[in-house]
Design a protein around this nucleic acid. Sequence first.
DNA 1: CAGTTAGTTCTGCAAATACAGAACCATATA
DNA 2: TATATGGTTCTGTATTTGCAGAACTAACTG
Lengths: 153, 153
Amino acid sequence: MVLTERHKELIERIGVFHEHKGMQPLVGRIIGLLLVHEEGEVSFDEIVENLSVSKSAVSNALTFLQAKGRCVYSTRPGDRKRYFALKVSDWREDFQQELENIAEIQKFIDEVLEVRTEKNPEFNCKMKDFSDFLGFFKKEIPSLFERFKKQQV
Amino acid sequence: MVLTERHKELIERIGVFHEHKGMQPLVGRIIGLLLVHEEGEVSFDEIVENLSVSKSAVSNALTFLQAKGRCVYSTRPGDRKRYFALKVSDWREDFQQELENIAEIQKFIDEVLEVRTEKNPEFNCKMKDFSDFLGFFKKEIPSLFERFKKQQV
DNA sequence: CAGTTAGTTCTGCAAATACAGAACCATATA
DNA sequence: TATATGGTTCTGTATTTGCAGAACTAACTG
């Protein structure tokens, strides 16, 4: 598949988006490439060529993505190449995980509340309020997915 | 205020938590300190001393936190020191912002769908499904806060 | 005005990051 | 067995990060 300028530019932007999320640059670009690539399955050297990076960098980035469970490869009979693809199938789990990660701060808030004195009750009260909300939020996550399912025609 | 070992250890953990979110180490530690500090307001040199870092590092970190709107300082009559505090009051806005940041990936998904051919309809379909969910999710955010308010006694 | 206090900005550096290039390994093929 | 292919691992390095330390500024103080 030949990438147009539009493809390349979109891959770059998807790359920086993921960089901001803490991933290393190339990992973000690879996610971008796997997203825009029409077949969805991209060979190792197609990645090397399209992104103009070294084999070693691609190898490490793919190892990382596979370890994180965001990417898998398949092989084809009589073809030693590996074809890499995103695990888009798991978006529900991934999204749920991300939401729970955010709510993880509740643990810290609660520990903070244990440690704090009564010297600043207003502060404590707001923290308690936030913690309560985070607990509520976590409980609401499953029903969110259910409601989405229902409202789908 | 004198910090116990428990305080210090909690500050460290809050620090690494924020590091994982992309912040620089000291910024995370300062958030931790401002959280566990009983008065809630901490002077510049209390930060320097408690975290054993240089004035320049603290100055830069505080500038960053203020720019991000996560921290403010107040002064006291006849006292030239600045007392820094977290803006815990804004936790609703902040949390809402974080949720919307996650959902920001919808823009990219939609652009990807525009660019993609029909060669892999299954992939496209899953992406479309994800995008629809993100749209649904964004719409649900305000009602989430409302429901929290209602279920509070 | 000299000295002090509170904080900022500038300069430099040690450590971490992200990658290139080469050597390497494993499997397939001639 | 020699050679090619596909990918990994190792080594080195340019760049970036995160901070220290010193110089600096601004306001107050005697």
